[in-house]
Design a protein around this nucleic acid. Sequence first.
RNA 1: GUGGGUGUAGCUCAAUUGGUCAGAGUGCCGGGUUGUGGCCCCGGAGGUUGAGGGUUCAAGCCCCUUCACUCACCCCA
Length: 420
Amino acid sequence: MNKITAIKGIKDILPADAPVWHKVETVARDIFERFGFREIRVPIMEKTVLFQRSIGETTDIVEKEMYTFRDRDDELLTLRPEATASIIRAYIEHNMAAADSIVKLFTFGPMFRRERPQKGRFRQFHQIDVELFGDETPAADAEVIFMLIHFFETLGLNQLSLEINSLGCKACRPQFSKAVVDFLKGSESSLCPDCQRRIHTNPLRVFDCKVEDCASVIMDAPLITEYLCTDCDTHFASVKSLLADLKMSFTVNPKMVRGLDYYTKTAFEVKTGSLGAQNSLAGGGRYDGLVSFLGGPQVPGIGFGIGMERLIACLPADPAGKFSTDIFVAALGAPAQKIGFRLTNELRRAGISAAMDYSDKSLKSQMKRADRQNSSYTLIIGEREIEENRAELRDMNTKQQQSLPLEDICPALVKIIKKR
RNA sequence: GUGGGUGUAGCUCAAUUGGUCAGAGUGCCGGGUUGUGGCCCCGGAGGUUGAGGGUUCAAGCCCCUUCACUCACCCCA
């Protein structure tokens, strides 16, 4: 029979890796709550229309990457490819705007995109997602970006680059877009086939093409910064100055265009040099029209997503998280096994991490297991001990042993172990 | 969806131009120590060399097909 494996691009997080994940989540929770954000848990499935409307019908995500299926009542459902849409849906559905004009939320969890996997890219991947509703000031942009960088630094990540840009709004972006199309049409023949296609589908994408000819063509193209309306322009200037006030180093990348349709004004991305081709650790931006577009009130929003797998891949290895046990109970013979079984579980109930081998192997083999589990103590109960109503407690580091009476041994052990 | 690379023991990898090549290290189990871990020594289990077909006297090695993994493109976290 063929062995059943995990689905392509979908990975197990094994016990050896789980502590890092746990740490990242704990640090995120700590920091985000300090900035006034509160955790929300949203479902990993939504009605397909939610993503179609929010992300954009013509984006790659919606066109070819979503895991969509028909429910038994014929409704189309989708495994979420990103978290923002769900959070906005929840924000609207629970009328959060009415309770407070400013709402700050974060969430963790798996996202699903059916792409070809490669280094730093998976079909199920995890994001930390942050959203801030109801604050249109540039200070909100700067705060969110500052928090993101602070989070990375707390985890020990440096050598990151922060890039920002402004994508304009629905007043000025269409004009810019048209200017780019007009410009590109002039030199259409020298563009790569992909970019020739992009002129019609998503012209701004030509800006991140890596083909040399395209790059040299686009070098002289008009830049969004030249087309920003006064509102967007002053907003962007203000964001930059606030970031400078916070001593943040960043570069303005006027060629950065983010993949999701809904972004307006500020867009940002954090990159690392140590990750191969998929070097984007986090990305986000402002989406001032999206909440109302999805049927909610006219409320601005800004947020970002962090790729957890990519983040963890960059993290310095942490050797600290070794699994250990307080005490290993080594029992020899049936009567000792019986006593040991009861004692082991009593110890656990008393808050001690205890382990035992139930198969009555040789003492040597039980000691080996105790060693492998990094147990601080081993309690030896053999036939001799039972006869004399006692047990031998061995300190695994000092090799010192002491004899303890079997009667009331549990509280005695708890006392010794807790004192350590 | 397109292209490149790689598939040998649980893990990391060896195996001359195709010719006893199915191995090592590590891990696991056991023994050396009739009841005491780590170090050392000895032994054992574990592989239809991803799968299927072909060429050949002979294939882990060459050819074809297929699957898986991986990297890159597209795109994104």
